[in-house]
């Protein structure tokens, strides 16, 4: 499990650099990059921190990943998670922080 950073969408704000619990993200030429993606834990802290939806979570092929990419966007208490599959189909799930897990 790791992340992928879209250089086109990245605005170089560096918020992901500061938040990564592994210190794995750096700014290179004013764009965020992850030189060693295999060190990522997959916690998605950076995915949620990025206001540009430039960072996507994915599952490595060695753990059965099928190429889907998941980004997140926050609005107040709402988190919108969008999964985009390699065939272009996408699905968005909305979670409200005020709603508890029921299980």
């Amino acid at each position: 499990m790791s992340i992928e950073i879209d250089r086109e969408k990245c605005v170089g704000c560096g918020s992901c650099v500061g938040i990564c619990p592994g210190g794995l993200i750096r700014l290179d030429d004013e764009k965020a990059c992850i030189p060693q993606p295999e060190r990522c834990w997959g916690c998605a802290s950076c995915v949620k921190e990025c206001s540009e939806e430039a960072i996507a979570l994915f599952l490595g092929e060695d753990m059965g990943g099928l190429g889907g990419r998941m980004t997140a966007r926050q609005e107040d208490t709402l988190l919108f998670w969008t999964l985009t599959r390699p065939d272009g189909t996408a699905q968005t799930l909305t979670v409200d922080r005020r709603d508890s897990n029921k299980y």
């Binding site: 998605a44 995915v47 979570l57 599952l59 190429g67 998941m70 999964l83 799930l93 897990n101």
Partner: peptide
């Protein structure tokens, strides 16, 4: 549906697995 959301709040990779597969 509830499980998809529940896992997003602690292990988003599992939700990703269910959705992409």
């Amino acid at each position: 549906e509830d499980l998809l959301k529940a896992y997003l709040n602690m292990a988003p990779g599992q939700t990703l697995r269910w959705l992409e597969s």
